[in-house]
Computed example of a mutant assay.
Amino acid sequence: MNCWNVYAIEKTEHHAMQVQELSRTEYEQCAADFAATVPIEQLPLWQDLEATVPGRSPWGYAAIKDGERLVALISLVQYETHGYRYLRAHHAPVWEEEPTAEQEAEALTALVDYVRGRDKKQVFMRLAVAHELPITTPCLSTLPYDTTVVIDLTGGDEAILSRMKPRGRRDVRKALRECTLTFSDETERAIESFDEYYEVMVETAARDGFTPAPAEDYRNMLEILGHDHCRLFAGRDGDQVITWTIATISGTHATRYYGASRTGAARNLATDRLIYFECCELGRIGCTEYDQMGIGSEFQPATMGLNTFKTKFAKDGVRMVAPDRDVPIKKTFYRALVAAKAARARLRSAKHAE
C-alpha cells in the first residue's frame, strides 16, 4: 500500500497511531477487505455525489493504523461556506472494532496533524466520535444523533412483521387491509424525471417545516449511487404518487434516507405500508438490516418526537451510534465562529422578546 504522507502520534508502547493517505483505488481495496460494513457515505461513490452540490468537493481518503495494523478508514469531503472551509466525514472514522476513548483521542490527534500538514485552510473537521473528548466540541450546526432504530430484515416477510412492537404489527396489518395504494420500486422512473416525486417532497416540507434540497440532488443520488446502492420505493393511487422513500444500500446494510408523503386522511396508513414494503423488498435483495436514520435521546432531545413512530417497527431495534462532533483545527478561528453563532442567537432572542 503506497502513501504520500504519514502523520504519527508516538505511544508509550513504542508504536504509533498513524494516518496514511490513500488513493481512491487503494481506499476501495481497503474498504472491500474491511471487516466492518463501510457506510454508504464512506464509499467513493458518495464523494462523486457530494461533488455535484455547490460548495462541496472531494478532499481525500485515508487509513488510520495502530502500528502496522489497519484500525479505521475515513473519506473526507470539503465543505465551503460563509468564506471558510471545513472537512466532513459522515459516519466516520469507520472502525474495524469499537474504539476506546483513548484510541479515538489518538486517532483524532493524528488526523488533526495530518490535515494541518496537508491543507492549511481547513478550520475544523466534523466526524462521528463515540466518546466526548477534550479534542471535540458540540457541532456548530446540524442536529447530530447518537441513537437510531435498526430493523432486522432476515427470515422473510412474516419474520419481519413478528419482530415489530405490538403497535407496529397492528398498524401494518391495518395498512395491509385498508390501504389501496399500489407499491413498487420506481428507481428507474425517478431517474428519468424526478418532478412528480419532488412535488410530494415540497408538500411534505411545507407541512413539516423544513426546506427540501433541490430536485436534482435527489435525482443525482439515485443516478450516481446506482441501482446497487440506492432505490426509490413509491406508493401510488392510480397514476398519482402519494408517498415515496429513497433507501441507500451498502453491503447488507440499508438506510431509509429520505421520505415524503402527501397530506391526507390515509397518510399514516400509506407510510406504514410503504415502510413494510421497503423492508420486505430490501430483505429479498439480500439486505439484513434497515437503519431508520436517528431518533431522539438525552443527547439530542429535539428529535424525541420521532421515537414513537420509528421504534414501533422494531421492538429490539434501538442502537447507539457515534454522533457527529466537531474537531477544531484552527482553534482561534473556530472560537470566533462559536462566538458569532452565540451573538446571532442572542439577537434573535432579543427580537422575539420585543
Rank of each mutant, 00 (worst) to 15 (best):
H352V: 13
Y218V: 01
V71H: 04
R325Y: 02
T255N: 10
P144W: 04
R344V: 06
P54W: 08
F299K: 03
V123P: 03
T37G: 09
T142K: 12
Q240W: 03
M125G: 02
R177V: 11
I249S: 01
F299H: 06
F309A: 05
L76I: 12
M293S: 06
K11P: 08
G283Y: 00
T81Q: 15
W46C: 07
R348Q: 15
P212R: 05
E13H: 14
E41W: 03
W59P: 00
T52N: 06
K11C: 13
A63N: 06
P99I: 11
D228C: 11
V202Q: 07
A36Y: 03
M1D: 13
G259T: 09
A101S: 14
M125P: 02
L133I: 11
C3D: 09
M293F: 07
L43H: 02
T255I: 15
K121E: 12
Q103E: 14
E68S: 13
E278F: 09
A101F: 12
E298W: 11
W4V: 11
L337V: 09
A234I: 00
I224H: 00
L133M: 07
L274R: 03
K65D: 00
P93S: 08
I246R: 00
M304P: 03
H352W: 12
G155C: 09
S23R: 04
F34W: 06
R267Y: 14
P323D: 06
A345G: 12
F309W: 11
K165E: 15
Y61N: 06
V38Q: 04
Q47P: 00
C280K: 11
R319F: 07
P134Y: 05
N268Q: 14
A265I: 12
P138E: 14
P39Y: 10
I74H: 02
Y218A: 03
L306W: 09
A107T: 11
